[in-house]
């Protein structure tokens, strides 16, 4: 049953188009415009060509921020995806427990991002925070303000706290859609718990896992508010990820040209990597094991 061709459907899409054009296309054009111009102030601009792009692509500062962001996203995915799957597998399937788990798990997702930062900023403090205080009491030297490694530890555990539930909820939705007969057949076939997971549950979660990986990659790659509140990008520049660097460049230093060039490169990297993830995962799903 194919959908009928109807060009009038454009009228239905028009409001979305206008709105998104206003809120996305115009700003994006501004960015492109800045990225190829230079200014000495007084609203006088002149053509700079690809100079800003070249400068940005050669800049060690950009490379470092990009590297930090890639490492951050990689760690996030490596922790959150398996953990989310384990949590989803552990969730109750019926009864009041389901509602309780859903509500409690969704809670961190609905906290404003700077409050998430504040919660962990406080929680990790050695003097007044439970985490920092406990670690100190255990004799572990922990201070996220001074030690880069501790700062990383804090923002990673914060992100795990903040977003693992999203992965878990997605996987849970995939799990509950598996018909009971599959589990019965597996029992009859004498399948082990691992085999049930590997050959029934994992294949059925494929689709939601793709979405989970994409969302978690994109959002961790664009992260700004939470680490900014906790560490402000420090100590030094150790937790300055791309977004933090970009805002520093654009709002802090008001270097519009480089900031615009960086924005475009940044956006393109997100698009490219998302596309790679998407292609690899859909191929994996279609192709071999």
């Amino acid at each position: 049953m194919d959908k009928p061709i109807n060009q009038k459907a454009w009228f239905l899409v028009l409001p979305v188009l206008l709105l998104v054009a206003f809120s996305a296309v115009i700003p994006l054009m501004t960015v492109v415009n800045y990225s190829v111009q230079d200014t000495f102030g007084n609203n006088e601009f002149f053509w700079a060509g690809t100079a800003w792009f070249e400068e940005m692509l050669r800049s060690p500062r950009f490379h470092q921020a990009l590297a930090r962001n890639l490492i951050f996203s990689a760690i996030i995915l490596v922790i959150q995806i398996p953990l989310g799957i384990v949590v989803a597998l552990s969730m109750p399937r019926k009864g009041v427990g389901v509602s309780i788990c859903l509500v409690l798990m969704a809670l961190p997702l609905l906290i404003p991002w700077n409050v998430v930062g504040t919660i962990w900023q406080v929680f990790g403090r050695v003097d007044i925070g439970l985490l920092g205080h406990t670690l100190e009491a255990l004799g572990i030297d922990y201070n996220y303000v001074r030690d880069p490694l501790d700062a990383w530890f804090t923002i990673i555990i914060m992100d795990v706290w903040h977003w693992t539930s999203l992965v878990a909820l997605l996987c849970y939705a995939g799990l509950v859609s598996i018909p009971e007969a599959y589990y019965q057949a597996a029992r009859i076939d004498g399948a082990s718990r691992w085999a049930v997971f590997r050959y029934i549950q994992l294949p059925k979660m494929n689709r939601v896992l793709l979405i989970a990986v994409l969302l978690r990659f994109m959002d961790s790659f664009m992260i700004y508010t939470e680490p900014f509140v906790v560490t402000g990008g420090g100590p030094g520049n150790s937790t300055t990820v791309l977004s933090i660097d970009l805002v520093k460049l654009a709002v802090g230093q008001f270097d519009l040209g480089p900031a615009a060039a960086m924005s475009i490169i940044y956006f393109l990297i997100v698009l490219l990597l998302s596309w790679v993830f998407y292609t690899v995962m859909t191929n994996y799903e279609r192709g071999g094991q």
């Binding site: 007969a181 009859i188 076939d189 050959y199």
Partner: peptide, 26 residues
């Protein structure tokens, strides 16, 4: 016991061979 259900239950990601071998390998 072996059981055949109303809707075909197969292991999607496996080949036909592996499907048939599954109960034995387990």
């Amino acid at each position: 016991i072996a059981q055949v259900f109303q809707f075909p239950v197969i292991y999607d990601t496996m080949t036909v061979y592996d499907n048939l071998a599954f109960p034995l390998r387990n």
